[in-house]
Design a protein around this nucleic acid. Structure first.
Length: 940
DNA sequence: GACATCACG
DNA sequence: GACGTACGTGATGTCG
């Protein structure tokens, strides 16, 4: 904290008006909230930034020697004894500001600045006391404030700094504002009063008049004594009448300079902040940018130190290193490796350190199309190399011809022992990609860590997990952008065309960043208690999923082409029909034109506008119109369905067939969702149509090789089963144990209908309610989904809560947990951070609460699926020729020789149904349904 | 690049 | 009393 240090004429005392600052910051800055939970922290953020700036940016000669942040103590002050209405017109502070008061004090302490407050005194009095004392000792004083009440303190040695405008206020500026020198400011204020502080002053006299009068009569007392001499009648009478008010006002505005301050001035000596404590605070607040900046500032300080006195700096302890990563990147130390000798050196270094970041450079983002172009290794901060292996350009000054580089086979032969050595950990960022490429060169790096997945286990829902984001978030360092070395647009170079110098600068840095991320993030897994999630679930996903992606799935191109033309025909017919009804052509694909036709031209009722002011033409609206007997909306909806099916599926999928494998290879993202689910893209094979008959036809085109079948295995009602377990719903658990139709059971419980008398319609409503509960139900949402009115929906929910006590408790407990911790957890301990859970805006908070209710359920199901997937390669090894191809959240798709389908089904079913064991025990059975067929449609 | 829409679990 | 609402994704077409 601070230390005792004498105040001398060389001293610079900086006094921050903490209370004044936060009120101003609160109103001036955008209403920032902590991402994790919505806690309002705008003023604290502004305050922390300001403190950092004060302590860091000050040039050497103005760097503070003494520093304190001064706050108003709550409660009455001596001024209320003088004038009971003092500051009486102040309302309560804004609700969003209140929780920030204590946090601001925490911020002060975190930055090593004592937070001073004393009961009975305002911050201004304490500032005045310190300032006058320091001034008397010949020191310079800077008051960080824009409060005009403090301007009376300004002198040759005392100046003010407006922190928001970054404007210095000296005697000149004070005179501009008050029309008098700083020593007369009190007198001006006594006369003019202050509506903000409720200082009365003399009615009718403002700052201008006061300055004029004081100029003529010298000071307040003289003026009041000689008031009778004033020629202007109005001023004269006011002054005579309110002379006492002016005297009282003077007592109010005069700052007390003789407070018996604690701590004393000398004890405000500046020391370096406790780094550990500072980072704890910044992390707690979620100030990522500031954290990174502080780190960088500290980092620069260290390097400067090394260079300045050329002495070796003591190596930081592991604990300090974790908090205090090296964020200085020095590209000059990267090496381009062009010989076996040098490669051997780097491999030896990796064996020494036992940890090596590995990053591949290729000529394509698609790991199946990608050819290896080079390999990078990083073994220590700034100690990284790039090994070009297949560069075709950049060899000479014109950028033509292949440069000197190692023979690829030779290099890979040398690298293989390192990549496969059990004692050397390979670290990658999104290692699934690299694994996919390595695989095609018969390399299988192991063991490995993936910094993207470490970040995901730690911070899902808080920040992204791409390398650039992570580097910026944790190191305030933006890696060289790919565009910078490759260019953009159609002239963008592929990596093999980039010159070696540029390539090394970019590639080695990626490996360097990756290694540093690993050093920084890996230890946090343990402190955040997510080691098990990472090690027992996520870390094994890359090689399993890379394999699935490599397998791909066979798609019947001719079938898709047939469907495309079928959909085209349908669309053409519907388009003609629509134009005829609308009595004119328009673009059915333009929601804007559709809205204008329906609501402006045809004047249909029931139109709603989107937030951008356009007509809403979504399914719900058009369905309603169609139900009212309008023909056009139905036509448009039908056209849209075919348009969607054609453009998104039958056309796009044909284009996605890999010419080499003749199969479609999706890319699964392992770190995209907030719940632990995977996502699929390029193409997305997790949203292939199934709900409508026309759409399902697309699944006919997903087929098995000749002599093989597809096996689709689905978890049955897994989320509802998990809800029954987690919320402890005995009736529902029993139903699952008995294997009865769960939606029918729900309907029977709720509506008192016997299972034997169940109708499809009643069951459908119960099903919608079951889903609704999982989603964090609202009467509105349920009504919209079931078609009943809102009142009825509300009744349904009420009944549900009565019939399944436990639901209410689960929801309340989950919301409370989310609010308290900022995250909720799955049964396996995966944390799902809920942004906005402490938002004051009721809509946004309600949204966060629904996420909080859903996340443990969806997330636990996702965890179980991940575990099934990582167990699957071993499990199906006994079934020759069986391959796992796709995952669709609660479904796995396999391909297997026809005669082994039964064996596979039995193995897969067992593996999936017990995937959660032994990590957790469930009070409901898990059930998997699996079927084989030659195409994906029939496998359901 | 934002927005609206719609495909899936 | 009004407001806007089911949870999680990705791809496509318009339009500015």
């Amino acid at each position: 904290m601070s230390q005792s240090k004498p105040v001398t004429p060389q001293s610079h005392v900086v006094l921050v008006d903490g209370s004044g600052y936060i009120f101003r910051a609160f109103h001036a800055l955008p209403p920032l909230t902590r991402k994790r939970d919505g806690l309002p922290i705008g003023a604290v953020a502004g305050f922390s930034n300001m403190l950092f700036k004060m302590l860091k940016d000050q040039k050497d000669e103005s760097r503070p020697t003494h520093f304190a942040v001064i706050f108003d103590a709550s409660g009455q002050t001596f001024r209320n004894d003088i004038y009971d209405l003092y500051k009486a017109n102040r309302g309560e502070p804004p609700e969003d500001l209140v929780p920030q008061f204590p946090l601001t004090r925490d911020a002060s302490r975190a930055f090593g600045a004592p937070a001073v407050e004393m009961t009975g005194f305002e911050a201004d009095d304490l500032i005045a006391t310190y300032a006058r004392q320091a001034e008397a000792l010949g020191a310079r004083v800077t008051i960080i404030s824009s409060d005009k009440d403090l301007m009376q303190l300004v002198s040759d040695r005392v100046s003010m700094l407006d922190p928001m405008k970054n404007k210095t206020i000296g005697p000149k500026e004070v005179e501009e504002k008050f029309g008098v020198s700083p020593d007369k400011v009190i007198d001006v204020q006594s006369l003019a009063g202050d509506s903000v502080d409720n200082v009365p002053g003399v009615p009718g006299i403002g700052v201008k008049t006061a300055a004029l009068l004081l100029d003529q009569y010298g000071d307040l007392e003289t003026l009041l004594e000689r008031a009778g001499e004033i020629p202007q009648k109005g001023r004269r009478e006011k002054l005579l009448e309110h002379a006492d008010m002016a005297r009282v006002s003077k007592k109010l505005v005069t700052l007390k300079c003789d407070v018996d301050v604690d701590p004393v001035l000398e004890d405000l000596g500046v020391t370096d902040p406790d780094v550990e404590q500072l980072f704890d605070f910044l992390e707690e607040m979620g100030f990522r940018t500031l954290t990174a900046r502080v780190r960088q500032a500290l980092g620069e300080g260290v390097t400067d130190g090394i260079r300045a006195d050329d002495t070796k700096v003591e190596v930081a302890s592991p604990a300090t290193r974790d908090r205090y990563p090296n964020t200085v990147f020095d590209h000059t130390k990267y090496e381009c490796v062009q010989s076996a000798d040098r490669l051997a050196h780097w491999i030896a270094r990796a064996f020494e350190t036992g940890v090596v970041a590995v990053d591949l450079e290729t000529d394509s983002l698609d790991s199946r199309a990608a050819n290896m172009v080079g390999v990078c290794l990083a073994v220590e901060d700034n100690e990284a190399c790039y090994v070009p292996l297949a560069h075709t350009g950049g060899g000479d000054l014109l950028g033509d011809g292949a440069p000197e580089q190692m023979d690829m086979d030779r290099a890979l032969e040398m690298l293989a022992p390192l990549l496969h050595d059990a004692s050397v950990l390979k670290v990658g960022q999104n290692f699934k990609y690299d694994l996919g490429v390595f695989k095609r060169y018969d390399l299988n790096p192991t063991p490995y860590d993936d910094t993207m997945l470490i970040s995901y286990a730690l911070h899902n829902g808080i920040n992204g997990h791409g390398m650039d984001t992570l580097s910026e978030t944790h190191f305030a360092h933006s890696p060289v952008p790919f565009k910078e070395i490759a260019g953009t647009g159609k002239n963008q170079k592929t990596f093999d065309q980039i010159g070696l110098e540029e390539a090394t600068r970019y590639a080695a840095e990626d490996a360097d960043v990756t290694l540093r991320l690993w050093k920084y993030l890996k230890p946090k897994l343990a402190t955040s208690q997510v080691t098990r999630v990472y090690e027992a679930i996520d870390r094994d996903m890359p090689h399993v999923v890379a394999k699935m992606e490599n397998e791909g799935i066979k798609v019947d191109r001719a079938e898709l082409a047939r469907l495309s033309s079928y959909f085209s025909q349908k669309m053409a017919g519907l388009e003609a029909e629509a134009h005829e009804i609308a009595e004119g052509p328009f673009n059915l694909g333009s929601p804007k034109q559709v809205g204008e036709i329906l609501f402006d031209k045809m004047g249909l009722e029931g139109g709603k506008k989107t937030k951008t002011g356009a007509w809403q033409t979504g399914v719900d609206i058009l369905e309603d119109l169609a139900d009212n007997g309008e023909p056009l909306p139905r036509t448009i909806l039908n056209w849209r369905q075919f348009s969607k099916l054609k453009s998104t599926y039958t056309d796009a999928l044909q284009a996605q067939i890999n010419p080499e494998t003749e199969r479609v290879h999706t890319s699964f993202s392992l770190a995209a969702t907030t719940t632990g689910r995977l996502s699929s893209s390029d193409p997305n094979l997790q949203n292939i149509p199934i709900r409508t008959e026309e759409g399902r036809k697309i699944r006919d085109a997903f087929i098995a090789e000749a002599g093989h079948v597809l096996v689709a295995a689905d978890y049955s009602q897994i989320e509802l089963r998990l809800l029954a377990h987690m919320a402890d719903l005995p009736t529902m658990k029993q139903a699952f144990a008995d294997g009865v139709d769960i939606h029918a059971l729900t309907a029977s419980e709720m509506f008192g209908v016997k299972l034997a008398d169940m109708t499809p319609d009643i069951r459908r409503q119960a099903k919608a309610i079951n889903f609704g509960i999982i989603y964090g139900i609202s009467a509105f949402g349920l009504a919209k989904n079931t078609g009943v009115d809102r009142g009825t929906a509300a009744e349904f929910i009420k009944t549900y809560f009565e019939k399944f006590p436990g639901i209410r408790a689960y929801m309340d407990a989950t919301k409370a947990e989310a609010k308290e911790r900022g995250y909720v957890s799955t049964l396996f301990g995966r944390k799902c951070h809920i942004a906005g859970i402490r938002e004051r805006n009721p809509q946004r908070r309600a949204f966060a609460e629904r996420q909080a209710i859903n996340a443990p359920i969806q997330g636990t199901a996702a965890d179980i699926m991940r575990r099934a997937m990582i167990k699957m390669p071993d499990a199906i090894a006994s079934v020759e020729g069986a391959r796992m191809l796709l995952q669709v959240h609660d479904e796995l798709v396999f391909e297997v020789p026809e005669d082994r389908a039964d064996a596979l089904i039995s193995t897969v079913k067992t593996t999936m149904e017990h995937a959660h064991e032994p990590a957790i025990t469930l009070s409901v059975p898990i059930d998997v349904e699996a079927q084989a067929a030659t195409n994906w449609n029939d496998a359901h």
